[in-house]
Amino acid sequence: MKHHRLFIIALVALQLSFVDTFAQGFKGGVTLGVAATQVDGDTYGGFDKAGPILGFWVERNLVANWFWRANFRFIQKGSFAKIKDSDMTDFYRMKLNYFELPFTFGYQFVNGFSAIAGTSVGYLTKATEENSLGTFPDSDAFSFRKFEIAALAGMEYNYSENWRFGLMLSYSIIPIRPYNDNISYRMDTGQRNRVIEFLVVYRFQ
């Protein structure tokens, strides 16, 4: 509960600053998107899990064509797989709900494209795993780390003054959950989120 209160306070503070920053030369708007996700280390492959992305952002120009951006958003990560054998068809689904604070720097090219990179700190509010037999025990969900640090990189296309379309890649810098019995494979010490983000970015007037 303490972590939940801290993130609510951070959200309120960001909302207040979001309203105030337009008087200081900032831009701002909202982001909508879809995340295609998988979890490295869960023994399944493919970006087969889709999750929503919803948030808001503020941005300010730096020197020349450089800018920085701060975001607050909700994103659902995880993985999904269909499992087939000779006797039955099963499935596995992992859902990880995060509130994230991504901070990125970008460079806008003359052709309307922008390159963006940065890091993100996320707080895991809910984790579930399930298959055809039902939801996994709470002890499995509790094994996920509450905080995630991820690296971000991608491109945006500035369609107009108000609309942008983006493609971003993100990957967990530290594992989101250790392997059973804390087993490690050289530098591989646990499961990590791998995400492809398809974004629509709207700038307020």
Rank of each mutant, 00 (worst) to 15 (best):
I8A: 14
I8R: 09
I9F: 14
I9Y: 13
A10V: 04
V12G: 09
A13K: 02
Q15T: 14
V19K: 11
V19D: 05
D20C: 12
F22V: 13
G25K: 08
G25T: 13
F26K: 03
K27R: 13
G28Q: 15
G29Q: 06
V30W: 11
V30N: 02
T31Q: 11
L32C: 06
G33S: 08
A36M: 09
T37K: 03
Q38I: 00
V39P: 00
D40Q: 11
D42G: 01
G45T: 10
G45P: 01
G46F: 05
G46M: 04
D48C: 01
D48F: 10
A50G: 10
A50C: 07
I53G: 06
W57I: 02
V58A: 11
L62S: 09
L62K: 05
A64D: 15
A64L: 07
N65P: 10
W66C: 06
W66I: 10
W68P: 09
W68A: 11
R69P: 14
F72C: 08
F74V: 06
F74C: 04
Q76K: 08
S79E: 04
A81K: 08
A81E: 11
I83T: 12
K84H: 09
D85V: 08
S86K: 08
S86W: 01
D90S: 15
Y92S: 10
M94Q: 11
M94P: 00
M94I: 05
K95L: 07
E100W: 00
P102D: 05
F103Q: 09
F103H: 01
F105V: 13
Y107E: 00
Q108F: 02
Q108C: 05
F109M: 08
V110Y: 00
V110M: 02
G112L: 03
G112T: 10
F113W: 14
S114R: 12
I116H: 02
A117S: 15
A117Y: 05
A117F: 12
A117Q: 05
G118Q: 02
G118W: 00
G118H: 02
T119Y: 08
S120W: 01
V121H: 05
L124Y: 06
L124R: 04
K126P: 02
A127K: 00
E129F: 04
E130K: 10
E130N: 07
E130D: 06
E130M: 07
N131E: 02
N131V: 11
T135V: 13
T135P: 07
D140E: 13
A141M: 03
F142K: 11
F142N: 14
F144Q: 03
R145T: 11
R145H: 14
K146L: 06
F147T: 15
I149D: 04
